[in-house]
Design a binder for these strands. Structure first.
Lengths: 191, 191
DNA sequence: CTGTTTTCTTAATCTACATTAAGCATCCGG
DNA sequence: CCGGATGCTTAATGTAGATTAAGAAAACAG
C-alpha cells in the first residue's frame, strides 16, 4: 500500500527500515470519491496529501467563478495548499478529486515532529520544494512569454499520460485559456 | 558586513555563534557594477547569491529578445537559477545588476558540505524554498486570473519600496505587459 | 556642459484570446 | 434504458493588451 511513497522518498534520501516504519506510522490512508473535496477555500489546511491512486486537481477560483488549475496530482505526487498549511490561515485554494482517488495523509503536527526525529526528512522536503520552485518558475515563464498553442504543446510533452486521461477543459484551465479557445486551436492544428 | 545574512537566518532557525562563524567562512563578498551579469543563459550556475546592497533582476529572454523578469532581489533576498544550480545544466535565466550591488556568494559544493556539518541549514533552506513556492503560486494565479491593472496594484502593495526605485519598464516586465501599455494604464488611472 | 543613450509617452492599428449563445454528443445514475 | 448532467464544438462579436513608430524628457558619460 505504501510502497509508492517509500520508493518516492528513496529517490532522494535513504531511510533505514526502522525509520521507514516510523515514518509510515504518521501516515493515514484516505479515499476520495470523484468530485469530493480534500480542501475548500476558507478551510485551514491541516496536512499534506501524497496521491497513490486516482487524480487530484489543485485550483483557485476567481471572482467570476472560473477555476484556474495550478496543479494536477496523479499517483506519486503531493498536493496541498502550502500557504494555509504553513501559516494556518484559511486556504485560498481548492483541492478535489477528478476521479476516485486514494491518498496518504500526513498531518502537520506529525510531520513537524518527524523533522526532529528523522532530520534527513528536512532534506527530502527541501528537495521537493526546490523542484517545485523550478516547476513554477518554468510555468510562469511560459505564461509570460509563450502563446497558448505552445503552452499546450509544452504540457503535452511534459505530461503525456495526463493528456489522455484528462477532460480537455481541465487542460484548458491549466494552460490558461477557455475551453472554447482550446477546442478551436486543436481543430485548426489538424486542418 | 554579514549581519544582514545572520539576521535573515535567525528569523527561521537558530545557529550557535560557532556555527554562524563556520557558515560565514563559506561565504564571499562580490561586487557587481550596474548592468553587470551575475549569470547568463548558457552558464552553469555554481552558487547562490544573497544580496546585501543594491538590486538584482532575474529574468528569461524570449525568442524575440524580450526580457521577462521573474524576480527582483533587493537586500535581504536570494537570487539564483535553481534549475541550473541543481542539475548543473546550462542556465536558462539571466541575472544582472540594476544598480551597483554587493552580494554574499555561496558555492554549491560548500553549501552541500555545510548541509551535513550544520544539518539545521537543511531546515532553513527548506523553509526558504517553501516560501518561494507560495510566492510563485500566487503570482501564477495572478497572471491567470487578474487583469493587468490589478497585477500592478498587487505589485505596488507587495513591494512598495521597489516601485519608487525601479524604472517603470521593469515593473511592466514583471507584471507581464509592455512598457507602452503600463504607461497608458497609469495615465488613465489618474485621469 | 553637450551629445548620446535610456526611459517614458502618445496614438494608430492589429491580434490573440474571451464572451456569448447555440446545438450536439456522451456519459452516468436511477 | 431513459433523462439530465457534463463535455465538446462552432461561430459571431467583443476587448485587453501587443505592435509600430514617433517624439519628448530625463539620465548619463566624456
Amino acid at each position: 500500500m505504501h510502497e509508492l511513497l517509500l520508493k518516492h522518498i528513496a529517490m532522494h534520501i535513504s531511510l533505514s527500515p526502522d525509520e521507514e516504519q516510523y515514518f509510515l506510522k504518521a501516515v493515514t490512508l484516505r479515499k476520495l470519491r470523484k468530485k469530493q473535496f480534500l480542501l475548500q477555500e476558507g478551510d485551514i489546511s491541516k496536512g499534506t496529501a501524497f496521491v497513490i491512486k486516482g487524480l487530484l486537481k489543485v485550483y483557485s477560483m476567481d471572482r467570476n467563478g472560473v477555476e484556474h488549475i495550478i496543479q494536477f496530482a496523479p499517483p506519486g505526487w503531493w498536493a496541498g495548499d502550502m500557504k494555509s498549511y504553513k501559516t494556518r490561515q484559511p486556504a485560498t485554494l481548492f483541492i478535489d478529486a477528478i476521479e476516485d482517488t486514494e491518498i496518504l495523509w500526513i498531518r502537520r503536527e506529525d510531520l513537524d515532529q518527524l523533522y526532529t526525529q528523522i532530520p534527513v526528512l528536512e532534506r527530502f522536503f527541501r528537495i521537493l520544494a526546490e523542484n517545485s520552485v523550478i516547476n513554477y518558475q518554468e510555468r510562469l515563464i511560459g505564461t509570460l512569454s509563450l502563446p497558448a498553442a505552445e503552452r499546450y504543446y509544452a504540457f503535452c510533452s511534459k505530461y503525456p499520460s495526463l493528456i489522455e486521461q484528462l477532460p480537455q477543459k481541465y487542460v484548458a484551465s491549466y494552460i490558461g485559456v477557455t475551453p472554447e479557445f482550446l477546442s478551436k486551436m486543436l481543430k485548426n492544428k489538424t486542418a
